[in-house]
């Protein structure tokens, strides 16, 4: 049992920070000062809430910039931040700050959104808890992955690097630990931000079934 994989899951209590932005300058100010858990929430909420829908747009900032402010180029720039290659929420924050500052300094015309469409900053308190699913080998991991709540997948894929400063996702770390280097590498190589969560679940299940 020592090497068993215990599935955990997570749920977010969503907090309102009472901070809102009407334009890219105010968005930048907000991004600079909100807690890092707010950055995490705004970059993962859409994926978690739309887990069967198209993976785009992966974050709230990009969605608001593109669809409310109509700034498609800036929206694309914020959308395309390569989160999988970023190691911490502070680095992610810096990346957004740089891209927003570049846009603002480029002298592009800055206008406010229409009233009622402001960007509201949220924060989250994340509760993590064990589930009854415990896998002792690769086959059990695959079977359990089919049954767990999608939030469990989120916890084991997104949280380890960004919020726990671990090197890689929990599945790959465990697989490496039991000598399944190839499977670990295959999962580690995936960019989870380019999938829907359901699509990602199915992809990992196929890898674990050695079908990929």
């Amino acid at each position: 049992m020592e090497k068993a994989f215990r599935f955990f899951s997570e749920a977010h209590c969503v907090m309102l920070l009472g901070i809102k932005s009407r334009n890219p300058i105010q968005l930048l100010e907000g991004i600079k000062k909100v807690p890092s858990s707010s950055i995490y929430y705004h970059t993962h909420r859409f994926l978690q809430q739309h887990y069967r829908v198209s993976p785009e747009p992966p974050n709230d900032f990009a969605y608001w910039i593109t669809n409310i402010l109509g700034l498609r180029e800036l929206g694309e720039s914020i959308t395309s931040v390569d989160i999988i290659n970023i190691d911490s929420l502070e680095d992610l924050r810096k990346e957004y700050v740089t891209r927003l500052e570049n846009h603002i300094l480029s002298g592009e015309y800055i206008s406010d959104c229409i009233e009622g469409h402001e960007f509201h900053f949220f924060d989250c308190k994340t509760f993590v808890y064990p589930t009854p699913f415990i896998a002792k080998d690769v086959d059990e991991l695959r079977e359990d992955l089919e049954k767990v709540h999608i939030n469990s997948l989120c916890f084991h894929i997104f949280e380890p690097k960004l919020r726990y400063q671990r090197r890689e996702n929990d599945f790959s770390a465990w697989l490496r630990n039991i000598g399944e280097e190839k499977l670990a590498d295959q999962i580690s190589r995936l960019d989870p931000y380019a999938f829907t969560l359901e699509g990602l679940r199915q992809k990992i299940i196929r890898i674990l079934g050695r079908d990929d």
């Binding site: 209590c13 807690p35 858990s37 924060d123 993590v128």
Partner: peptide, 13 residues
Amino acid sequence: LSLYHEDDIVGLN
């Protein structure tokens, strides 16, 4: 539950 926990990540054992 949040009323009893201050941190932004809470482990419920």
